[in-house]
Nucleic acid binder design. Structure first.
Lengths: 236, 236
DNA sequence: CGTCTGCTTGAGCCTTGTCAAGAAACGTGG
DNA sequence: CCACGTTTCTTGACAAGGCTCAAGCAGACG
């Protein structure tokens, strides 16, 4: 959050309290399972996670990829049973905290409350971008958008990433995120390669023509263009 | 909001302040346009609205239908430019208010802040349901889900609605919401009718077999099953 | 009464899914 | 460090769900 505004000491203390505890999570492990009661929220400290739902026919829709700094399980905190599963795509570290800690922030730190709302809205807009992609764009555009989003989010934690990165996802997972089959994802990656937009070698992807990719994908970086001038002042 | 918890006098006053002003909106009118700056939020008092985005090729994705009581434009308040368009599907009445009023609620009313977060999460989960529908379910299931969602949301404002209702949408609009073409929406409606799940006459739809529809559509009512026990106490 | 928007239906096509099989990469235990 | 099993990737052939185009029809509205 400190990337958006200068935090006061009291605010920093409150956020650090959320991160008191740490818990390692193995690759493939499930932190929270759909339809099971859940009493914890988390902040992701290290690694890559995802949230997904399973449908009646066994197919999976990946809703979101989660990166260090993201707050996990907010929607589950609001329900008696989690609406989605949280699983680790790589070895991760999370900081669990309970609903009461969230309530305390809402009570004591109006500006942090507003910032949490801001993050929820960023996430919401990113979700609607993906909704529009699934509803109205081609398979190739969806895969391109996923690559761009992934690269941009990885870069916020690891500044050294430029145009090449290890995507850390199987083609099956890319398909479950974009609403495609793994086979078709493979074809789309090959086409993007043939079009000269990317290159690939053993799990690493290089974006060759970012502008053309962004255009093909209708991509907008939703972490830019924010307006935070209206936030209430920090209380302490 | 009073449907979720018993509000205190101070909270009621704060919410009524948001609804001080009223503005009529004609059917078809646009309240807020994508990529234009916006300084207002709204509460929808009467009528049916939608939010949508337009893609580069001119196609439209409807993100959400909006019903009386919904807060509109929260995501736009967070950005310098609105990420989506708000348009009226019927003659409507809205109550505009500005970002400062939102900031004041965050400052003075922790429990209302938490409730706003809860509503954002309900909306978020409804969006992820639709994401999963677009990514992983058939055209027929998506149309069925839309009908169910629409009926349930209409019923929260108009208790007299049972299984029959006027949907107030063109087939083109249904298509833009479900990621289908108007032509295919028509075919799916006819199939649902042939399957004995619904009947139609001149814009009115009757749900004949709600259970089977819900099953076909993978539908979950996200306004149920909430857990609000953790909310902070009202300050006044 | 004419126009316009929305609904309905058919024919044919295209994008994406399904199934299958082989190759490559990865992980694990010896 | 090797050998094996498993997962993942790759590619082809074929099927199907949904789209496009086109035309006729019905109802709303000036």
């Amino acid at each position: 959050m400190s990337e958006l505004v200068e935090l006061s000491q009291g605010e920093r203390d409150a956020l650090e309290k959320l991160e008191e505890r740490q818990r390692p999570v193995r690759r493939g492990a499930v932190l929270q399972r759909e339809n099971e009661p859940c009493n914890e929220l988390f902040i992701l400290r290290k690694g890559l996670m995802m949230s997904y739902v399973l449908l009646a026919d066994g197919s999976r829709q990946i809703l979101r990829f989660l990166f260090p700094g993201d707050m996990l399980g907010v929607s589950s905190a609001v329900y008696q049973e989690a609406p989605e599963t949280l699983a680790a795509l790589s070895d991760c570290v999370v900081s669990p905290f309970d609903r009461a800690a969230l309530a305390e922030i809402m009570r004591e730190h109006p500006r942090l409350s507003a910032l949490i709302l801001v993050y929820c809205q960023i996430e919401r807009v990113a979700l609607t971008d993906r909704l529009a992609a699934l509803g109205r764009t081609s398979a190739k555009a969806r895969v391109a958008a996923l690559l761009l989003e992934l690269r941009n989010r990885l870069r916020t934690t690891n500044k050294s990433i430029a145009n090449a990165f290890a995507l850390g996802l199987t083609q099956e997972e890319i398909g479950d995120a974009t609403g495609l089959t793994a086979v078709h994802v493979n074809r789309m990656l090959r086409q993007l390669e043939e079009d000269g937009l990317i290159t690939r070698e053993s799990g690493r992807v290089t974006l060759l023509d970012e502008r053309a990719l962004g255009h093909a994908a209708n991509y907008v970086n939703r972490y830019k263009g924010l307006d935070l001038s209206w936030l209430p002042p920090p209380r302490s």
